[in-house]
Structure formats: C-alpha cells, structure tokens
Amino acid sequence: MIIDSHQHFWKYNPKKHAWINEEMSVIRRDFLPSDLQTVYAENGVDGCVAVQADQNLQETDFLLELAHDNDFIKGVVGWVDLRNENVERDLEKYASDKKLKGYRHIVQGEEDHNFLLRPNFLNGISKLEQYNAVYDILVFPHQLSATLEFVKQFPNQKFVIDHIAKPYIKDGFFDGWAVLMKEIAKQENVYCKVSGLITEADYNSWTPEQMHPYMELVLNAFGPSRCMYGSDWPVCLVAGKYSQVKQLTTNFIASLSAEEQKAIMGGNAVSFYGL
C-alpha cells in the first residue's frame, strides 16, 4: 500500500495564498480531491494525509469535510491556535473526529527563530498527547537548533519533520543542516518526511543526484522505520510531475529490503498517523 504522507488542497484565493508567487504561477488555481484522485490512479497511490495550508479553523473543517467525502484521504493534519490559552476547547472539539490525526503551524513563516520555544506554544504542544494527536514540524534550517530543544522537551509526543526541514539545496548548503538533523534524529519520537525536495532545488534544472546526499543523510539518521514518503502535491508541480517526485524516492530506496521499502512508502505513515 502506498500512502502519500503529505499533500494539500485549496480553493485558490490570491489574497489568502499570497505565498504562491509569480514563479509558482502554475499552482494558482483550485486543487481538490477529484484532481488528486486522477494523479493517484496514474501513479498507483492508495491514499494520503491532507495537511493544512492556511492557519484558521475553517481550514481544518474544510479538510475534514473533504476527508469524510473521499475515502482515499485517510487522515488530516489540521490547525488550531496552539498559543491560545483555551486551546483545549478546540482540541476537545476535533478529538472525536476519526480523520483528524494531528496539527501543524507554519513555523517557517514566523520571524522569531525561537518561535517553537515560546511558553504559550509549548503549553499548547503539551496538551496534544492526551488527545493522541501528532505534530508536524515545518521549519527552515535556521530554526533547527530551536527544533532540537523543542523535541527534547516532549519525549512522548509524536513529531514528524516536514520536507526534511527544507535544506537550501539550490545553494548547495549542507553541513549545518546535517549536523542538527542528526541530533534531532537521536530523539526516537521524531520521524521525517522525505518530501518537498525538488522545490528546494532549482525548479528547472534539478537532478536526482543533487538530492541524494540529503536523502542519504536522513535515511541513515532516522532509519527506514522513521522515514515516510510524501509528495507535497500540488506545490511539487512548480518543479516537476508527480511521477518524478514518486520515482525520486522509489529509485533512491530501491536497494533496501522489500519490507523497508514498504515501510517508507506507506507503512510508517499508517503507524505514525494511526490511519
């Protein structure tokens, strides 16, 4: 079973989706389950986890509605304001929905390098475990030292790093990112999504070989039991086709055992998110 652990849906709105710049104009349109179902049929993908792209409760409700109407959407990573002192009200509300698996905040967009360590945010994170909710960590490499401190504070909370923490592949930067990713991987409650790589390289001239050192480091650090395949569709379309994204991972892990390949391509997402 192949599970895409990371994709998005949206009804395009120029104001709300201002982050989709000129260079990414190919994704300035609606992307809904019917679009993705076609892509999955062509690529032999069985299901997915839909991840929030907007920071409001309407986004969480929107994704849950799509998940209830489309069985191939196996789980949702939504958003609640984890800084809110009354966050438990929202966590309580969504806890009864079997498709809601966890939460994410767009930390990469926060100017404070130590956003993850703010007391009000830590308070929100401390509530997740009792609701059996996971947390997706979306950060840039310069936020990884805070990420390390952050995950150490919650040894029983399930975390996953999105997009291998968005290393600056286009610029060839590696070492600083690599050192911190290895440290973070020592925390056994932290997983890593092998996703979002081609959009961190040059959209038009990336090669699989360029990605391999980053993929290798993550695979060695987290091991095949804590890595999961994700496409980052439709964002990935600015740099390539879905088939290219999938092949990048399947070709890279082809030398692993059949069991390890199955785990990365779906099994780990099933167990991590409880799909």
Rank of each mutant, 00 (worst) to 15 (best):
K246V: 00
Y242I: 05
F252T: 04
N251L: 14
W233R: 01
F252H: 04
Q244M: 09
A258S: 12
A263G: 09
V238E: 12
Y242M: 02
A258P: 13
V238W: 04
P234L: 02
V235G: 04
Y242V: 03
Q244K: 09
I264H: 07
T250A: 12
T250R: 07
G230T: 05
D232E: 10
G240Q: 09
V270C: 10
C236G: 02
F252N: 03
L256H: 10
E260Q: 15
S271G: 07
V235L: 07
S255Y: 14
K262T: 11
N268E: 06
S231V: 01
Q244S: 11
A269C: 11
Q261H: 12
A239I: 03
K262I: 03
S243Q: 09
D232F: 02
I253A: 07
A269P: 04
A239E: 03
G267Q: 12
G267V: 06
S257H: 06
L237G: 08
V238N: 13
L256P: 10
Y229A: 00
G266K: 00
A254E: 15
V270Y: 08
I264Y: 06
P234V: 03
L256A: 12
E260Y: 11
V270P: 01
E259N: 12
K246Y: 01
S243T: 07
C236A: 12
Q244A: 10
L256Y: 13
D232S: 05
S271P: 05
K246S: 01
V245D: 01
A269S: 15
I264F: 08
K241V: 04
A258T: 14
L248Y: 01
A239K: 05
K262R: 15
T250Y: 07
Q261R: 13
A254S: 15
K262E: 14
F252Y: 14
I253P: 03
T250K: 06
T250F: 04
L248P: 07
N251D: 15
E260M: 11
G267M: 12
E260L: 08
L256C: 10
D232N: 14
Q244C: 11
M265E: 10
L248W: 05
V270N: 09
A258K: 15
I253M: 09
S243V: 06
T250G: 06
K241M: 10
G240M: 03
W233V: 02
Q261E: 13
I264M: 07
V238F: 13
A263Y: 04
D232G: 09
K262Y: 13
F252E: 00
L256F: 11
E259P: 02
Y242H: 03
A239V: 10
P234A: 05
M265D: 08
V270A: 14
K246R: 10
S271W: 09
G230H: 03
T249F: 04
S257K: 12
A263R: 05
L248G: 06
